[in-house]
Design a protein around this nucleic acid. Sequence first.
DNA 1: CACTCATGTGTACAGTCGTACACAATGTGT
DNA 2: ACACATTGTGTACGACTGTACACATGAGTG
Lengths: 209, 209
Amino acid sequence: MSERKKRKPGETREKLMSAVLSLVSKGRHFASLGIREVTRQAGVVPTSFYRHFRNMDDLGLQLVDELGLVLRRMMREARENVFQADKLIEESVGIFVSHAQANRSFFLFMAQGLAGESRAIQDGIRSEMRYFATELANDLRRLKLADHLSDGDLEMTCDLVVRSVAFSLTDLMGISAEDEYQVEQIRKRTCRFLQLIFVGAAHWDNKGP
Amino acid sequence: MSERKKRKPGETREKLMSAVLSLVSKGRHFASLGIREVTRQAGVVPTSFYRHFRNMDDLGLQLVDELGLVLRRMMREARENVFQADKLIEESVGIFVSHAQANRSFFLFMAQGLAGESRAIQDGIRSEMRYFATELANDLRRLKLADHLSDGDLEMTCDLVVRSVAFSLTDLMGISAEDEYQVEQIRKRTCRFLQLIFVGAAHWDNKGP
DNA sequence: CACTCATGTGTACAGTCGTACACAATGTGT
DNA sequence: ACACATTGTGTACGACTGTACACATGAGTG
């Protein structure tokens, strides 16, 4: 139970996970990747794979965990940088887009996993999205921006927001990262989506059941 | 250039496409399917595949075409059955859910293809969604339900509607088709999403650029 | 009839797959 | 210093893969 002082503990593990992300950003789908292919990309012998993962789904699940970290970092940055309520949407979407560009492979993996082959990975990603929606609801409450909404209605609104942003994610992933014009189009369009949703939320009066 | 009277023209072709759908509904991802696996499921010899498709992506593209037919059938039924404007959302979502159940494998394929491996299939499905949004916009114009919206804003609203429904689709595909309770939950939640969006659209005044 | 054409079958091959096993290197606790 | 646990390597095997080729069938056309 002492400290590990190996030269590079878990180095191959990281190489394998990076290899998957790298293949995914090259256009491959996670479900079509095999152990040999991943180890080849990582520059390791196939047998090494089993030292760290039981199978590809196991690796995918651990990628979902790391994805969670990325998302939390993004949320923290958004919380630190969004001060004025009237720019809330623009700022948040901007941060989201830049994170999606900076961690393209992670978000690509996320988009794929939502309708992927492994139920466990699907559930993991869905759970991350639910957590995100909950945190968003907390923030809106804290900023007194949703006082007239019931808890259930606020939760629904945030859920819709997260889904819309997630769908914009698949738009982003469909274009090349360098196409500034298209990125800007998607950014603006996502902002308008969210504005529309928030206008709806602002005028939402016990219309729900 | 005369009429073909072969016993069963294109029979194997259909068997191959059905085989893919069948494998997809069993939980497999399209990107992970191989030619041999598909032909085995179809009860045909592997070489027969090439008589009808150049590769798996080609087959996928033709599945997208058939998916288009399914979507158009659904839209027609919605147009025929939705009379009163106040029940428009409930009726439409109900028709959507029942179609998604009846053609589960097609919609599963669609959900997968949105973030799939083949760019061509992605674009095909995206194009189907765009068509759908446009038709929806036409209907709303025709029913005089969006008179205060500019064309661009109406298009955006319909796009958001279609995206929200498409995301509900992945919810639907994640549960077992027999779980009536969960299906009902998703149905209700989708209705609330759309209601929120339409409330937003109703109060939308040149807030856009 | 013989022909062509579309379709389906059988065989074959080289490459890849997942994974089991024995072994080497190296850092850790006694 | 010793044995141990962890991590990485090399080899091996049977199953599966995509696809090329030659051939069989049967319908439509001359």
